[in-house]
């Protein structure tokens, strides 16, 4: 195991960096897109609700690998060349945003509808009540499941390995086949994933306690 770190340190570091980079980009965009569709779903406007419904149902019910392969294989045939890292990150963003939308929506729904009515009755606009009254409460409910989704996102970034995105799992496969020392390699990879995900899950728990 120490030999793996010693011999393949630079590859592991590169993979670690790529995984981190991809996760951060996908995290930001999927949170924004996901929250947007969640709000769409709870608006009084029917058109937006239908759009959001279709988006969420389609992307959360298809495996991530299929979405990613679509960007990697089909887009270059018709539109423009796209590398594995970009294809993987786009796929991951779209996929995760559908889950985040569903999570945030359930949070909004679990806020007592009386809150919204009360705020509206006090003269706030729909968007103002959403922003100041409903969303803060909704996010409190959904912090633990959102935390789960973020951790999922980091781990799901391993899909990049399938499209040669040079992430941690890709480098793991390369190192495992080069050193033929499969178990040790994947244990090293596991430790590196834990370095990202463990602090994230403790931070989420801390936030949950603080907000409760």
């Amino acid at each position: 195991m120490i030999a793996i770190f010693h011999n393949y340190g630079s590859l592991l570091l590169q993979g670690f960096g790529q995984t981190l980079l991809c996760s951060v980009i996908a995290l930001i965009f999927s949170l924004v897109i996901g929250s947007m569709f969640a709000i769409f779903e709870t608006t009084p406007i029917k058109f937006l609700r239908v759009i959001a419904r279709i988006y969420i149902e389609v992307f959360r019910n298809i495996p991530l690998l299929v979405i990613t392969m679509f960007f990697y294989v089909v887009i270059p045939m018709f539109v423009t060349k796209i590398n594995g890292f970009t294809a993987g990150t786009i796929g991951l963003t779209i996929y995760t945003s559908a889950f985040i939308a569903e999570t945030v929506r359930s949070g909004i729904n679990s806020v007592d509808p009386g809150q919204m009515e009360g705020a509206r009755a006090n003269g706030l606009s729909w968007w103002q009540s959403m922003q100041h009254i409903v969303l803060p409460q909704a996010f409190r409910y959904v912090i633990p499941p959102l935390g789960n989704q973020f951790i999922n996102l980091v781990k799901n970034s391993s899909v990049l390995a399938f499209v040669a995105g040079f992430d941690l799992m890709y480098q793991g496969n390369v190192i495992a086949s080069d050193s033929l020392n499969t178990m040790s390699t994947y244990i090293c990879i596991g430790i590196l994933y834990l370095i990202i995900t463990l602090p994230l899950s403790y931070w989420m728990r801390y936030l949950e306690k603080k907000l409760a």
Partner: peptide, 18 residues
Amino acid sequence: VLQLSDYAQAMTALKSGQ
């Protein structure tokens, strides 16, 4: 060098200009 997970995917990557 790009390493794909199987030959069919490598072939598809070749066809799509990767």
